[in-house]
């Protein structure tokens, strides 16, 4: 169980109040019609799946409802930073 600091509510809250929302920093192709199949594949499916420091989106679903960008070490699950998305 993670303890995730919510910068909006200004307190650390248990993981169960949050919903994981995937890797942070994925950008949807700006011009969908011009994007190639490979662009779509990269956006929709390819993930860094980093072993180590990972930036990810969480939503404080049962709290303020805001999306956050949480930096976490995926080896020891320690949350290093949490900022509003």
């Amino acid at each position: 169980m993670l303890l995730i600091p919510c910068p909006v509510c200004n307190m650390a809250r248990p993981e169960r109040e949050f919903r994981y929302a995937g890797e942070a920093g994925l950008v949807r192709p700006h011009d969908p019609g011009a994007a190639s199949d490979q662009d779509w594949t990269d956006y929709l499916f390819a993930r860094a799946n980093r072993k180590g420091v990972h930036e990810e989106r969480w939503r404080h679903l049962h709290g303020c409802g805001r999306f956050l960008v949480v930096t976490r070490d995926t080896v020891n699950d320690r949350v290093l930073q949490s900022v509003p998305a």
Binding site: T74, V75, D77
Partner: peptide, 9 residues
């Protein structure tokens, strides 16, 4: 777990 991790716990 709900999130990706390499910690084998």
């Amino acid at each position: 777990d709900a999130y990706p991790s390499y910690g084998q716990r």
